[in-house]
Every structure is written in C-alpha cells, then in structure tokens.
C-alpha cells in the first residue's frame, strides 16, 4: 500500500537526517538544559528567546538533549533569579545557561548549582563565580571600534555626540569606557555632548532633541545600540546636517540607513551582539555535558554590518527585529576551538 511505503520511507529519511545532523547524539540524550533569563522586555531579548526556541527546541526534539526549557523572571531582580536557579537545581536539570541580572549577585546560587554537580554557563550578562563558564562580550572594544571607524571616515576629526545606555549598568560603563579610550587616542575628536538614551529609540530621540540646540557642528554620533534611529529623527526634526550615526543592527536603523544610502549615498557602520548568542551558550553547555574540554572564558564575536553587507543583512533581518545569527553545533565547536 502506497500509504505505508511513504510512511516507512519518511521515517527512514527522518532517521537518516537526524543522524547526519547530530553527530554527538549518544552522550547528552538524557541531559536536561535550562535557560535562566532575567529580562524579556525589549526586542533584543525577545529575539534571544526566539533563537533559543528555534535551536535548542529543535535539538531537544531531535533527541540531542532531553530538554531545553527557557525560564524568564518577571521583575529583573537578583533575588528572584537566585530563587529561580535554586528551583532549577531542585528540578534536576543537568546544566543551567544564565543571562544574569548581576555579575556578582548570583554567585551564591551559581556556587550551589556547581556544588550540586550542574554545569553553569553564563552569557551576555555573565557571572564572576569561578566555577561557571563565561561567554562574554568585549563591550569595551565595541565602543572603541566605533571611534576607530569614525577616525578613518573623518580625517579632519570633529565633534562627537555620545549616546549612552542606562545609567548605572555595567554594559553602559564598558561601552562608554571604550569610546572614551578611542577618543583619547584620536586627539582630533572631542565629545561635545553626552546623553543617556536608555537603549530605547524614543528616549534617545528625546535626549538628543534636548541637547542638540546647545551643540555646535556634530560630525559623528557614537551609540550603544537601539538608539541610532531615534538620534537620526532628532537631527532631522532640528533641521541639522546628518552626522555619521553608528547604528546598532536594529531593523528600523538598518532600513533608515538603506533609505539614506539610496537617496544620498549616506555611509555608516552598524555593530551589536547577535541575540542568537543564546544558542552559542546552549551548544557550549551541551559540549561540556558531552565531556568536551571547554575553556572557562569564551568571547562572542561582534556582528558588524558595513556599507557593502547592508542589503544582505537587511534581507535576513526580520521586519521590526534585530539582525541575528544563530549558531549550529559545528560553529559553536569552532568558537571553542578558537579559544583553546
């Protein structure tokens, strides 16, 4: 009967596909991995969770791991996330992948997890507890390369406007530190004004609109991501010349850049971290559970978009989302091998 044949062929094909796609099949098939996430209230974090569902969800459906569940705390509080980690230990997970609310605040709970025999991998928001693995972003460098790019584009230098993130957050200090180091090395630049945009387009737009009238000619705007489009709208509303605004990979920023590029040849760059770094963290945890030797400190590569790659990036970026890269197991192994 035709129906049976198709089913049998389909099943055989499925077996074949899954065994081809999953070389590390055997050793982690009974392991459970949990994602402990501290915040979900912006588009970057939503993309991060979607990537996790796509990649880790498939890995668990394919039987690479027994489970890959995502948990997000409601209040972005250290105490809440510590309690969540303790619950995950009790629920019998073998590994916890953490995007942490604080670098130090969770160390107690992380130590408990390690002592209970769990593998802990932190990424983006990393933890300092030595027993955990860290997939860190070199935020300092992310600030510095913006100034280095502007130094190439503006041989005569000029005034810069800095848009910072959320005051008091470690990431904001790191990126800003990198920017200021870059400016110190390039004497032709000076930071004429600095405002906090809270990584939100509307807040950045408001802060820039306020300070702009008191600033003289601005040649470049250094940013932290999620604030470039708002800055461009503030410059436009004030009727000022459009400076080189460094973008942060958001879809609205990229599509505005594309419009300007087509209209008047506007040139800039865009840099941020792909939300899919959660999938790198997932594979790292899987590799450790698989018994592989993985260094404790790994670095995430930036996702940069240039004048030439703009169109391609825009095409693969979901409308309204953020440019993303999801990692496969082989790519994660590549990152690990690169750090050895």
């Amino acid at each position: 009967m035709n129906f049976t044949k198709v089913t049998v062929a389909g099943a055989a094909l499925a077996c074949l596909l899954s065994s081809v796609a999953v070389p590390a099949f055997a050793d982690t098939a009974d392991k459970k991995i949990a994602l402990s996430n501290n915040y979900a209230g912006n588009s970057w974090r939503q993309a991060m969770l979607t990537s996790w569902e796509t990649v880790a969800g498939k890995a668990s459906a394919d039987g690479v791991v027994a489970a890959a569940d995502a948990f997000t705390t409601a209040e972005n509080q250290v105490t809440e996330q510590a309690a969540q980690i303790q619950n995950l230990i009790l629920q019998g997970y073998d590994a916890i992948v953490i995007n942490a609310a604080s670098p130090e605040g969770l160390n107690g709970a992380v130590k408990e997890a390690c002592d209970a025999g769990l593998v802990v991998v932190s990424f983006d928001g990393i933890v300092t507890e030595p027993c955990a693995w860290r997939i860190a972003v070199d935020f300092h460098q992310m600030g510095k390369i913006q100034v280095e790019y502007l130094a190439e584009r503006l041989p005569d230098g000029g005034n810069l406007l800095e848009i910072r993130g959320l005051a008091g957050v470690f990431v904001d200090d790191e990126i800003s530190g990198g920017i200021h180091e870059g400016v110190a090395e390039n004497a032709k630049f000076s930071i004429e004004g600095s405002v906090h945009g809270d990584w939100a387009q509307d807040v950045a737009q408001k802060a820039v609109a306020g300070i702009l009238p008191s600033l003289s000619d601005i040649k470049g705007v250094v940013t932290q991501g999620g604030d470039g489009y708002g800055a461009s709208q503030a410059f436009k509303a004030a009727g000022r010349d459009m400076p080189i605004i460094v973008m942060g990979n958001r879809h609205d920023e990229l599509s505005w850049w594309k419009e300007q590029k087509d209209a008047n040849g506007y040139e800039t760059m865009s840099v941020s971290i792909a939300p899919g770094v959660s999938t790198l963290a997932f594979w790292v945890a899987q590799q450790i559970l698989d018994g592989k030797d993985v260094p404790k400190d790994l670095t995430v590569p930036f996702l940069s978009i240039t004048q030439d790659t703009l169109e391609a990036s825009l095409e693969t970026t979901q409308a309204g989302g953020v440019a993303n890269v999801e990692y496969s197991q082989e790519e994660a192994q590549g990152v690990i091998a690169g750090a050895m």
């Binding site: 209230g41 912006n42 809270d198 387009q201 708002g230 709208q233």
Partner: peptide, 16 residues
Amino acid sequence: FLAGFSGGAALNMGEE
C-alpha cells in the same frame, strides 16, 4: 501618538 512620533511601538517605550 508616541509610536507615531518615534517610529513604532517598542516593549520598553512606556517605562519612563
């Protein structure tokens, strides 16, 4: 109107 003003709605737009 804020979404109209700033180019779209965002999850963190109301925070402040």
